[in-house]
């Protein structure tokens, strides 16, 4: 049974595209057949993060409008044969995406993949509502910072009211993914801590991804961080999160435990 997952946040720049690529890469590594779908019409980036920007011929809008077949628009990953990308249009207006068009494409993707991961644009407008519209589950990405948590709360409200599942009286399964977590700043009380975020948002925690240079390095070379450096702290966090999505119980590792030795913590030093 295919699962449609939306990666959403409300606020921009919190790590949705990074997370879509990383979770997609991790699930594919774990043997699942995965497609990552870019819903950020006009501002596509998933192709760049996946390193497929030079292979885009057709896009999501071409498929919804019948200009191209789905098989013509899907791009297979260079590294993993069971990982695919459906790019967004860079030139079209976001109004070119229609609800019926999205419904049909998602329905077709469901027949071909185990996981359909939709990278939502920021905001709460049309693009974001279409990205979540036909999802079964949602990953709400947030940073440990007030405006991002506020927007996450707003998005949770929309997931519970504006998705096809919610309208049918069903519950969409929601998880929060905390990204760009800086253990040092959290310990000094400069950043909202995990327990506070979870208490406020009241949805289960999917993972905690540390702030890390490895994310930037991976995006520079166009490779999901989980495939670029699987041993790095952010890749491990994403890989554990992917296992949790698959229903496994994996112990939660707070980044401090990964990045800082006990001595380092006691001395208040930052890990390199």
């Amino acid at each position: 049974m295919a699962k449609v997952l939306v990666v959403t946040s409300g606020k921009g720049g919190v790590g949705k595209t990074t997370s879509t690529a990383a979770l997609g890469g991790a699930l594919a590594q774990q043997g699942q057949k995965v497609v990552v779908v870019d819903f950020d019409v006009g501002l596509r980036n998933l192709d760049l993060i996946m390193g497929a920007e030079r292979r885009v011929v057709f896009d999501l809008i071409n498929v919804t409008q019948g200009v191209a077949k789905l098989s013509q628009a899907l791009i297979r990953d260079k590294r993993l044969e069971n990982l695919w990308l459906l790019p967004a249009s860079q030139t079209r207006d976001k109004d070119a995406l229609t609800e019926d068009g999205v419904r049909d494409v998602i329905a077709e993707l469901r027949t071909k993949f185990d996981w359909v991961i939709c990278d939502s644009p920021a905001g709460i407008e049309r693009g974001a509502t279409l990205a979540m519209r036909y999802a079964d589950e949602a990953v709400v990405v947030t940073n440990p910072e007030v405006s991002s948590v506020r927007d996450a709360d707003r998005i949770i409200g929309m997931l519970d009211s504006k998705t096809a599942k919610a309208e049918a009286g069903d519950q969409i399964k929601k998880h929060v993914l905390i990204t760009r977590y800086d253990a040092g700043r959290a310990a000094r009380g400069e950043m909202l801590n995990i327990d506070d975020i979870l208490e406020i948002l009241a949805i289960p925690l999917l993972g905690i991804v540390p702030e890390s240079q490895d994310v930037l390095k991976a995006s520079n070379v166009g490779c999901p961080v989980t495939l670029n450096n699987a041993a790095s702290p952010p890749a491990r966090a994403y890989s554990d999160a992917a296992r949790r999505l698959g229903g496994e119980t994996v112990a939660m590792v707070t980044p401090s435990e990964v990045r800082r030795s006990l001595m380092g913590r006691l001395l208040g030093r930052r890990a390199a």
């Binding site: 007030v146 959290a186 310990a187 000094r188 009380g189 400069e190 909202l192 506070d196």
Partner: peptide, 19 residues
């Protein structure tokens, strides 16, 4: 450690304002 440190820092203010 968190408990001890909670008294300092701006995070508690952030939490309260958000709530």
């Amino acid at each position: 450690l968190n408990l001890l440190r909670r008294r300092t820092g701006s995070a508690p203010v952030a939490r309260e304002r958000l709530q």
